[in-house]
Structures are given as structure tokens and as C-alpha cells.
Computed example of a mutant assay.
Amino acid sequence: MGAYEEKKETCGTICLKYVLFTFNFLFWLAGGVVMAVGVWTLVEKSDYISLLSSKTYAASAYILVLAGAIVMVTGVLGCCATFKEQRRLLRVYFVLLLCIFLLEILAGVLAYIYYQQLNEELKQNLRETMIKKYEQKSYEDITRAVDKLQQEFKCCGSNSSADWAASIWIRSRESENRVVPDSCCKSPTESCGRRDHPSNIYKVEGGCISKLEKFILDHLKIIGAVGVGIACVQIIGMVFTCCLYRSLKAEPY
């Protein structure tokens, strides 16, 4: 009877090992996805981040990059701990899983909080950023971001093209009688911003605020879903780790 129980426990342990190994491989792949989403946010869309006064959006992306990197390292550690059957490594693995879980929940919560306050922030800050910092010294990143925003989303001004009338640059000699930046034009050419007729520039209802808000909200949903989704999967990994740890502890040395 004792031999049967020992064999039964050994079979259970072997099954747990292979289940946990499979989980770790998938977990490692998921870590790459998480890190890719964070890096894409910071690199591909970094210009738009400069238009936001709050750092919450960027912080969510940085957390995902960090969590993704730790996930990939943890996945390798989990495989080693599983096949070497070392309880000490399993403890370290479990702690890392818990840390990643908390990081990704934090990223999801930050994304949700920022989701709620984004509209108000854009209303308060985007127009002011455009009229006070566009084409001003030491704000080259803002100028580049605004031009990219207006061209990529086919919009002009914060709420409308009329916002540019209050721009420091538009009122200066450097604008060379432009009424809007050249990036407002449907076919941008040098000094095309001197004519603000609808046939020449973008006249979008809601201006660039509505376009940028939709873009960031959609991306926040991705950040939040990825963070919380992977975190929920990790709960399964932690349960399997605990089961394997108890199984190994029960076995004789």
C-alpha cells in the first residue's frame, strides 16, 4: 500500500512538472508580448506622450516593459526550478511571479485611472501646449509632436483651426503670415498654412482633442487588458507552483 502511495505521488509530481513547464514556456512568450506592447508605446508613440502633462500614460508603459522583462527571466527560472526539483528555486520563482502579478495589476489600475481623467486633461492642456510652445525654442519635441498629430490624424488645432489665432508663433514674424501651421494642410507645402479654407486645411469637428483622446483611450485599453490578463494567468502558475512545492516537500530526500 505504501509503495502504491509513493508511486501515485511520483506520478502526480511528474504531471505537475510538465504542466508547469508548459505554463512557463507560454508565460515566457507572454512576457515578450507584454514587453513589446510597452516598448511600442514608448518608441512608436513617444511624440504624443510629450503632449500630455500627466506621466501616468508613460508610467503604465514603463511598468509593462519592466514586467515583461522580468516575466521572460522568470519563465526560464521556472523551467529550471521545475526540472531540477529544487524547492529553493521554486520559492524564488513564486516570489517573482507575485511581484510581476502586482506590477501588472498596477499597470492596469494606472491605465484605468488615466482613462477616467484623460478627457479633462486634454481639454485643459492640449490647447495651451499648442499655442504657447509650438515653434518655440527648447520645445522642438512639442513642435514635432503637434505636426505629426495634425498630419497623422488629419486635424487642425486643439478644438478647431481657429485655436491657432491665439498662437504665439502665428502672431510673430516668424510665421510669415501663416494663419495655421503647414501641417494643417491636406497637401503640406512650404507656407501652405497662409490659407485656412476648408479645401486647403483639415476642418475636423472636435479638432485634434477628439482624435488624440480616441487614440490614447484605445491604447490604454490594450495596456490595461494585457496587464490584467497576464496577471490573471499568473494566478494559475502560482497555484501549480504551490502544488509542486508541496509535492516535492512530501517526498523523501
Results as ranks from 00 to 15, higher is better:
residue 129 T to E: 07
residue 221 K to F: 05
residue 141 D to G: 13
residue 221 K to H: 01
residue 204 V to W: 02
residue 111 A to R: 04
residue 145 A to R: 08
residue 148 K to G: 03
residue 178 R to V: 04
residue 193 G to Q: 12
residue 205 E to W: 09
residue 188 P to V: 10
residue 178 R to L: 07
residue 148 K to H: 11
residue 166 A to V: 07
residue 127 R to E: 14
residue 209 I to C: 06
residue 188 P to T: 13
residue 165 A to E: 14
residue 211 K to D: 07
residue 184 C to F: 11
residue 200 N to H: 04
residue 197 H to N: 14
residue 207 G to W: 03
residue 216 I to F: 03
residue 116 Q to H: 11
residue 216 I to Y: 05
residue 197 H to Y: 15
residue 129 T to D: 12
residue 202 Y to W: 15
residue 110 L to W: 04
residue 148 K to Y: 08
residue 141 D to R: 15
residue 125 N to K: 07
residue 114 Y to H: 03
residue 188 P to D: 09
residue 131 I to H: 01
residue 151 Q to V: 07
residue 123 K to C: 01
residue 151 Q to L: 12
residue 111 A to T: 06
residue 136 Q to L: 05
residue 137 K to V: 08
residue 109 V to N: 07
residue 118 L to M: 09
residue 170 I to Y: 12
residue 115 Y to D: 04
residue 156 C to Y: 00
residue 138 S to M: 09
residue 118 L to T: 07
residue 183 S to D: 11
residue 113 I to L: 10
residue 223 I to T: 14
residue 172 S to C: 04
residue 143 T to V: 06
residue 146 V to I: 15
residue 202 Y to K: 03
residue 196 D to T: 00
residue 138 S to Y: 12
residue 123 K to F: 06
residue 214 K to N: 15
residue 184 C to R: 11
residue 189 T to Y: 07
residue 131 I to Q: 05
residue 157 G to I: 00
residue 217 L to C: 09
residue 141 D to S: 15
residue 148 K to E: 10
residue 194 R to M: 10
